[in-house]
Every structure is written in structure tokens, then in C-alpha cells.
Amino acid sequence: MVKTSSRWTNLAFQLLAIILALGFTSLVMVLAKADPLEAYRNIVMGSVGSLNKFSDVLVAWVPLLLATSGLLVTYTAGLWNIGVEGQITLGAIFTTWALRVLQDSALSPALIILIGFISGALGGMLWASVVAFLKIYGGVNEIFGGLGMNFVATALTIWLIFGPWKRPGIGSMSGTEPFKEALWLPTFPGLRISPWSVVVGIVGIVVIYLLLQGTYFGLKLKAVGRNRRAAFLLGIPTTQYMWMAFLLCGLFAGLAGAVQVLGVYHRLIPSISSGYGFLGMLVAMLINYQPTWAAPVALFFAALNIGSIQLPIVMKLDSTLSGVLQGALVLSVLLMDGVRQRLMQRR
């Protein structure tokens, strides 16, 4: 009985949080002299208004879900892997690199794409291992190590696009020369989404779900995240577990970068990560770091991103409105959770 009542209060507070976030975002729009209802309607129509739009949502969903999946591992280990953005970027760089080397070889396109995925995963792991190394052996907090590596990754991308990998003639912000179509992930006819990337995304979150909820590894990782010292005293090799968490997250982030190159842009562009790393951190916070709701919440966030793309054209509003709504949502959920706990304590 007590359980169910606390479950209902939980739900009530979460609903309240959503109302608070919508209220705040509406207020912001009123400040910008825009009609909130029209904006929300545009976002809904722009994301699920047609099969085409919804397939675009899925295009954003896959890398976001992959980033979230990886982050769930580092969060479980009690690590703030802010470097996930750079890890996605390095994944994209490594995938592009592999494709550039192999595109004129005799290998079959399917094999080249597979190698592209693997190199992407390696790139993400490489960047994550720098952060892990700085954290574990240098005492540099992973937040600052990660942020620094994000900036380095961006610089590396821009240098490659304007330097060694520039288009014939002159380099430009539009990115490197697109790959030939044989090396694109095959899509559903007439749509931009590839069944293969959807498969990668779903397999990814299922693997993470099973790993965290159903294995000893997941259990021990939780112990490391809750209390590193106690876990160490209980005989868990905490250093190794932290390494594993960083490398796994890097692997998933790298795959997200590979999907961006192979299935979305077909080349390297300056903002190849599309901010999915930071957005994935928000998704993970919103689902309280539990994998169960990762897929639907990531889908909702992807829908907000895609739905707001046309706001600048239709309503002359900046498309960062989706970011405002996403941030407000996570913040009010955190605040409401705190309020709920406080009220419970009083009772």
C-alpha cells in the first residue's frame, strides 16, 4: 500500500515537473514575442507529421541512443564522462579515415562499411582512454580532462577538413568530399533512415541493459559507482572497472560517430557530433541513469530536435528552442525530485 502511494506521488511530481518545464518554455517564447501553442504545434508536425519527418527523427535517434547507452555505463561507475562529445567526433574521424584509405581498394563495400564501424569504435575508445588515463594516473578530474579533449577533437576535425582532407581545390566548412554512394549505409527507399543503423542502436541499448541489469560486471560496476573505496575493500579491482567503463562508453560514442559518417552525412563535417553527447547526458539524467526508459526518452528528445528545425523558417524563431525545452525538462525533474524527497522526509 505504501509502495503504491509513493509510486503515485512520484508520478504526480513528474507530471508537475513536465508542466513546470512547459510553462517555463512558454514564458520564454512569450518573451520572444512568439505564440507558444503555434510553436509546439510546429514541433509536433515537424517531427511526426509525415513518414519522412519521422524517419528523420529516427536518424537523430540512433546516435543519441548510442551516446546515452555508453553514458549509462560511465554514470553507473560514478564517472561524469563529459568527454563523450569528443569521443563521438573521434569515432567519426576514424571512420572517415578508414573509408578514405579503403574506398579505392578491391574490398566489397559491405566489408569497408564494417571496417568503418570498427574503426569508429576504436577512435572513440582511444579518446576515452586519454580521459581515463588522465583521471586514473594524473588525478585530473574526468570533467576537465573530457572538456579539454572535446576542444582538441573539434580542432582536429577542422584541421583535417581544411588541411590534409580538404576538398579538391579549397577546403570549406561544408566538410570533406562526400564518399561514393556504394559506401553509404543503404536506406529504406525514399527515406533517409537506414535499417542497419536502427539495428545498431537497438542492439546497443539491449546489450547495455543486459550488461547493467543482468551481469556480475554490472553489479560490481554499481558498487564502484556507489562507493569506490568500499568496493575496493570488498576486492573489486576498481581501477580496472573504471577503465572498462570509460572504454565501453568510448566504444558506443565511437559507434555514434561512425553512424553519423556512414549513415547521415557521408563525409566529415565540422560539427559532426551534432551535440548528441551532451544531449545524451541530459537523457541519462532524465531517466535517472536507468537503461529501461533510454530508448523512448531519447526518441522524444530526437523528435524535439528535428521538430524545431523548421522554426526559423516558419516562425523566425531560433531552433535552440528544443534545447531550452530539454534543459528545462531535466532541471525541473531534478528540482521536483528534490522537493518530493524533502516532503517525504518531513512526514
Binding site: V28, T320, G327, V339, R342
Partner: peptide, 24 residues
């Protein structure tokens, strides 16, 4: 007051304020 994770709240605000700045 609410005993929520300082890092989480600060990080969300870092993103939210940035997007608010660009939007407004």
C-alpha cells in the same frame, strides 16, 4: 536545500542557459 547533485544541476544549467542565450 533540495540536496540534488550539484554537478548534475550545474551541468543542466550550463546547457539550458546557453540555449536560452541563443534563443532569446
Amino acid at each position: 536545500t533540495l540536496k540534488q547533485s550539484q554537478v548534475a544541476v550545474g551541468f543542466v544549467l550550463a546547457l539550458l542557459c546557453r540555449d536560452l542565450a541563443y534563443f532569446l
